[in-house]
Design a protein around this nucleic acid. Structure first.
Length: 594
RNA sequence: GCGCCCGUAGCUCAGUUGGAUAGAGUGUCGGCCUCCGAAGCCGAAGGUCGUGGGUUCAAGUCCCGCCGGGCGCGCCA
């Protein structure tokens, strides 16, 4: 409809030009948008306001002339000039009603488009380290990333969903050492657990499993394990420093000690046990959450292939790497970063940053037209250095789009649920899903703008009332299903073609409102997809549900007049279809009964 | 201190990429079931869009300065 109006206006402008008006005026893109206020019609164009200055005439006057020159269209009932010079378009009832036919014809395809032209886009999201179960913060990234991917797919992009598994880094070694230490405890050794070790309960479970599989074959004395290590930094429960030391050196020393005492074979065994168990758990967790990936990309394969070293070499070749204090630095300040960054530590280990550059370079080389990363907002400082490195390597950093997602804060009984990663005391995604259900979790996570902090009200998410937007929307869907059941109980039958033939009977104002909301759906999907803003769709679905509930409350669907009944049934079915399509993109179920 | 994000109704948030008289939900108050699901609907009240300038036909939206909040500023990830 928008493009139709733009075409009409364009015709009018060209007509005016051939008449000699608007001589020498360059025609801009023609603005057409939906009116916010019904009294301003359905669509409005501010073209006269935009052109007034260059055309050197009054906007109102210009609007009149454009309106007069508009070709007739059977979809337009009335054109008005209003305000400072807006051209308002009022659609015919027939143009409203046509959307019902369109929805019924297209079914699940309604709202989908080919806008993206099949361009390949990669969306990488969650990518949490496999050092423990996903927590509620990761959940938001999962719901958001999955929905962005769904939306892009819906508007015609070829989407590749990927999880980057950090299975090679230092953190994984710390996990392995943590499991080993818990295992030693399990076998009766006692010592102070390192402050930088992983303290979660799951580490003890992994240790118990190691014992179940291998008995005491991996035991050494605590004295041996901790002999001559750099002093750990110790705090009391309130976080006050008790004994000064170097946490990092201590834990690195422990990792090294584990390798030596266990031997390569046994060390590998623990490492793999931890990695595989946790990554399987994460995969199951996400699958249950309706989040499925095309590829789980292993950092280790990147390293084994030599891609990390090759990337460092390439940066060296372009002169952006230097050595200082025994470490290798990337000159990211040359690309707008605040300071240069280390790629290879003094001890020879490459950093997370180094493999991340290699990974992103690899993404580009795989030929995606666009690459999207979903990160926690606390990583925002990381963006300039990754983009900088890509630029240094001759790539266009604009092809990488980093979407930042703020934390979700849980509230229960009106109070903030405290969480701290350090003590291993956090709410897992799985716990959240079990508490509020997958549907509420998926919806709540994306109902706010991603860069906005999310207050996640657990009580609201669980409540089965109109306060809860998920139930409110699902209820509208279930209501239509219920009407269909009633239809049979009342001995009516449904005649869809008859309903289509009598859409003109849908003249009530509530029907008109509902029709307009339905017609907006494809525009909403498009905007939500292109702006990477799932909340727009969530917001819209609430509005649609409201339009339906209002209508339903005011008018009966199952009236005795066959033609009217069938027309209203078609309208209801169209509503159900759009709710279903929208919820499907959000990863939320559309129940037939509740 | 520097960088990024955020300040809109009591609370939680939208605001169609700069459009006309700033909107929802919730909370408060008041109405609506002999009728397809009241898990619903309607109404009232509630605002200096943090603040001061600037840009233009038009600013909640763009630019600059303040005020307030969050995050980041490791040879951690």
């Amino acid at each position: 409809m928008k493009t139709h109006l733009q075409t009409l206006i364009n015709h009018a402008l060209q007509h005016l030009q051939t008449e000699g008006a608007l001589a020498g005026v360059e025609l801009p893109a023609i603005p057409v948008e939906r009116s916010r206020d019904r009294t301003h019609g359905d669509f409005a164009s501010s073209i006269a306001l935009v052109l007034a200055k260059t055309a050197r005439c009054k906007p109102l006057n210009l609007a009149e002339r454009i309106a007069a020159a508009l070709p007739v269209s059977e979809r337009i009932a009335k054109i008005e000039i209003a305000g400072p010079g807006f051209i308002n378009f009022f659609l015919t009832a027939d143009a409203y009603q046509a959307v019902v036919r369109e929805i019924l014809d297209q079914g699940e395809a309604f709202g989908r488009s080919t806008l993206g032209g099949g361009q390949r886009v990669q969306v990488e999201f969650v990518s949490a380290n496999p050092t423990g179960p996903l927590h509620v913060g990761h959940g938001r990234g999962a719901a958001f990333g999955a929905t962005v991917a769904n939306l892009l797919e819906a508007v015609g992009y070829q989407v590749h969903r990927e999880y980057y598994v950090n299975d090679a880094g230092r953190q994984m070694n710390i996990l392995a050492a943590s499991i080993w230490l818990r295992y030693l405890e399990h076998c009766g050794e006692s010592f102070r657990f390192p402050s930088n070790g992983y303290r979660g309960e799951y580490v003890r479970e992994l240790a118990a499993r190691l014992y179940a599989e291998q008995g005491s074959a991996y035991v050494t004395s605590a004295a041996q394990a901790f002999q001559d290590l750099p002093q750990d930094e110790i705090h009391d429960e309130d976080g006050n420093l008790i004994t000064p030391g170097d946490q990092e050196a201590h834990i690195d020393g422990l990792v090294e000690r584990a390798r030596v005492l266990l031997g390569d074979h046994h060390y590998r065994y623990i490492f793999e046990l931890g990695l595989n168990t946790i990554i399987d758990d994460i995969r199951d967790d996400l699958r249950e959450f309706g989040v499925v990936y095309d590829h789980w990309y292993s950092e280790r394969t990147l390293e084994e292939r030599g891609a990390v070293n090759k990337t460092i070499q390439r940066l060296r070749d372009v002169g952006q790497v230097y050595e200082r204090e025994g470490a290798l630095w990337f000159r990211s300040t040359a690309f707008g970063d605040e300071k240069d960054r280390v790629m290879q530590r003094e001890n020879g280990q490459t950093t997370y940053f180094a493999s991340d550059i290699a990974y992103h370079l690899e993404k580009f080389e795989r030929g995606f037209d666009g690459v999207i990363d979903v990160w926690g907002a606390d990583h925002h400082g990381y963006v300039p250095r990754v983009k900088g490195a890509l630029q240094a390597l001759g790539e266009n950093p604009a092809r990488l789009d980093v979407l930042l997602v703020q934390f979700a804060i849980l509230y229960r009984n009106g109070e903030r649920v405290q969480m701290s990663t350090r003590s291993g005391d956090f709410v897992t995604l799985r716990e959240l899903r079990h508490e509020v259900g997958n549907d509420a979790a998926r919806f709540f996570y994306v109902m706010r703008k991603s860069e906005q902090h999310l207050d996640f009200d657990l009580d609201l998410a669980k409540s089965q009332s109109r306060d809860n937007p998920v139930y409110y929307i699902q209820y509208a869907h279930a209501r239509v299903c219920s009407v269909l059941r009633q239809l049979q109980e009342k001995g009516f039958s449904r005649d869809e073609p008859r309903g289509r033939d009598h859409l003109a009977l849908l003249t009530e104002s509530h029907e008109e409102t509902l029709l307009i909301v339905l017609a907006r759906y494809p525009e909403v999907v498009e905007a939500a997809a292109l702006n990477h803003e799932p909340h727009q769709l969530a917001q819209y679905l609430r509005e649609l549900a409201n339009a339906f509930h209002t209508y339903y409350n005011e008018h009966r669907v199952l009236v005795s007049d066959d033609a009217l009944r069938d027309a209203r049934l078609n309208l209801s079915l169209a509503t159900r279809q759009v709710i279903r399509n929208g919820l499907n993109l959000l990863g939320v179920s559309a129940p037939e009964a509740m």
